[in-house]
């Protein structure tokens, strides 16, 4: 029910992003969505891509500190209030979301997020009949 996201620990310094992107370019990996969480000292660059395993391997080989995380990807209708409704369900279930970002894919709103309790989140998605995206589906959608 979850998909793989590459999370990269990067320095807040010019030249670090391009190093990451060049590795992905050379590996012929397609970036579907990405976001940077920054603090004064460092950043976490999170990427949903066409081939997370390959991306992870190539980044590691290039000496870039990264990890694969399991995140949820909900598919929502692109209408006002849909994100609020979805998040409310998790909130009511007592599940904390540690980070969240979204993007549009083929006219659908995609909500990517990580929770503190994946098992409970899975049960909640199931119980509420929420639509989610599986990893094999991602490249075909892009």
């Amino acid at each position: 029910m979850t998909i793989h996201q590459i999370s990269i620990f990067i320095e807040n310094r010019s030249g670090t992003m391009i190093k990451v992107l060049n590795v992905l370019k050379q590996a012929d990996v397609d970036i579907i969505a990405s976001t940077v969480a920054d603090t004064a000292e460092y950043g976490i660059y999170r990427i949903i891509c066409s081939d997370p395993k390959k991306a992870h391997e190539q980044l590691k080989n290039a000496g870039i500190q990264c990890t694969i995380s399991d995140v949820f990807a909900l598919e929502l209708d692109n209408l006002p209030g849909k994100a609020a409704d979805a998040v409310a369900i998790f909130s009511e279930a007592g599940i904390s979301i540690s980070y969240l970002y979204s993007f549009l894919l083929n006219g659908k709103g995609i909500l990517i997020f990580r929770t503190d309790d994946n098992e409970k989140a899975k049960a909640t998605i199931k119980a509420n009949g929420l639509k989610y995206i599986t990893e094999p589906k991602l490249p075909t959608m892009a």
Binding site: Q5, S7, F9, A37, T39, E41, Y42, I44, R46, Q65, C66, T67, S69, S98, Y99, R114
Partner: peptide, 16 residues
Amino acid sequence: ELEKFDDDYAKLQKLE
């Protein structure tokens, strides 16, 4: 340098 990174911002802050 961080030995192991596991995509948990709260943990990094706590560590710092």
